[in-house]
């Protein structure tokens, strides 16, 4: 009887959460369903995919998108694209060092006090492609390219949203829609087309406008592992890389979680036995 009560209590607590907020359906096409290696309680990052994704970021995205929360050393951390068990301290990882050295960062020369550019070290963060947000806006027709370090967490739908928007960018606009110069139609972007649509209001197209020109193309990035470079492959890999950039501790979190869950189940079992024993002779 008591166990039943416990179960019904747990069910009620769960129901409180399931009945929680449901966001209103925004106007966008259903996101493309992608199977990710990092899904589920035992999910992990696919290191080769992260390396391909990093290459897409480096060669395509990074010319406009900053990633100011990620340091070069993070690339060599456990779970990261260039983690190598031989180098537990990612600052020693030669791959990380060479990636960092490719970038130039601003510094102050200690002798003259002049502002100089020096090669980045593993401790530096990815530098922004623009000096400041005004420069970023001016270079992109007023739309500031968002920072990519947390973008997956900052968009409903996460990595699937990134994948869908990147592949849907530049879709031919539906009849009746006028696309202003410097903008592109994207059915997956959460938006509102009412200001740009002059047809039958009941046939309002889903999606919205995006200022980013379609970024990817077949064979735009030559993958080092020989994977065929299609738009979908590039988009999927860069979305996975961005997932890692936003949540680099995911593997550690899920592994710790497993140990904690096992402990808690055993501990609660012991406490339940103890509870039954103490209350054995007490009517209640």
């Amino acid at each position: 009887m008591t166990l039943n009560k416990v179960l019904s209590l747990a069910a009620l607590v769960g129901a409180v959460f399931l009945a929680g907020p449901v966001m209103a359906e925004s106007s966008q096409a259903p996101l493309k369903d992608v199977h990710w290696s990092f899904e589920g309680p035992f999910g992990h990052y696919d290191q080769e995919q992260l390396q391909r994704g990093y290459k897409v970021y480096r060669e395509v995205c990074s010319s406009c998108h900053a990633m100011n929360q990620v340091a070069f050393r993070n690339l060599g951390d456990p779970g990261g694209p260039f983690f190598d068990p031989k180098y537990p301290n990612s600052n020693d990882n030669p791959k990380v060092k060479s990636i960092a050295a490719d970038y130039k960062v601003s510094d102050i020369d200690g002798d003259s006090g002049d502002v100089i550019k020096r090669p980045a070290t593993s401790a530096d963060y990815f530098p922004s492609p623009y000096a400041n947000s005004a420069a970023a806006a001016a270079a992109n027709g007023g739309a500031i390219p968002p920072d990519m370090s947390l973008l997956v967490k900052a968009r409903e739908g996460g990595a699937a949203y990134i994948y869908s928007v990147v592949t849907g960018d530049g879709t031919a606009p539906p009849a009746g829609a006028t696309i202003p110069p410097g903008k592109y139609y994207d059915p997956y972007k959460s938006g509102d087309m009412s200001a740009n649509f002059h047809g039958d209001p009941s046939k309002m197209p889903v999606g919205g406008l995006i200022a980013m020109p379609p970024p990817l193309a077949d064979n735009k990035v030559a993958f080092d592992d020989g994977t065929k470079s299609t738009i979908n492959q590039e988009a999927r890999d860069v979305a996975a890389f961005m997932q890692w950039a936003a949540d680099p501790k995911m593997e550690e979190r899920k592994q710790t979680g497993l140990a904690v869950m096992i402990f808690l189940v055993l501990f609660s079992g012991l406490l339940y036995a103890s509870y039954r024993r103490i209350w054995r002779d007490v009517g209640h």
Partner: peptide
């Protein structure tokens, strides 16, 4: 002991 048992169940949901 009863509160303790309930707390562990709560901690499972929390975790």
């Amino acid at each position: 002991v009863k509160d303790g048992f309930a707390i562990t169940l709560f901690m499972i949901m929390f975790a």
